[in-house]
Amino acid sequence: MKHRMLSAAVAAMMATPVLAAEGERVQITGEMIDTWCYYSGVMGGPDAVQGTAHHTCALWCSAGGIPVGLLAEDGTVYMVLKIEGDDGSAGGDTQLRLASHTITADGMLYTRDGINYIVVEDVVSDAGITNPNHEDFGPVPGFAIPDPNQ
């Protein structure tokens, strides 16, 4: 009897990680960023891979199919899977058009294995590009803007 109870408990615990995630309605304000440059540090620190400094690279990465994230004001990143019915999260036009923009997104949040995902049902507001950090960092990477002298 004891063995059967222990086996059942073990089986239940082993099964836990594969349970489907549940969604939660949220409204998030943040910047649409290129997640690989942000997470990997390949281009420098997190402050340098957002805003105007990194806008051209954000276009490259979005068009290249790298996941786009919504970087909230508290530093949380939400991986964007869909925007207003457009499921083109791998190089789609809607995500490309919104690169580096600060938006307020209303939608459903899903969390799984330490990653936040958002399905944006409505872009409540789009403030455009609001972080003029090229004044601090220059273009990131340095070759993002072609040198007119070469």
């Binding site: 594969v18 690989w36 997470y39 990997s40 790298i66 996941p67 190089g91 799984r112 294995d113 990653i115």
Partner: peptide, 16 residues
């Protein structure tokens, strides 16, 4: 059962 998110391919070319 962990869902791993592949953000990047092997090319150093801004590609997913």
């Amino acid at each position: 059962g962990v869902l791993v998110y592949p953000n990047k391919n092997a090319q150093p070319a801004f590609t997913g």
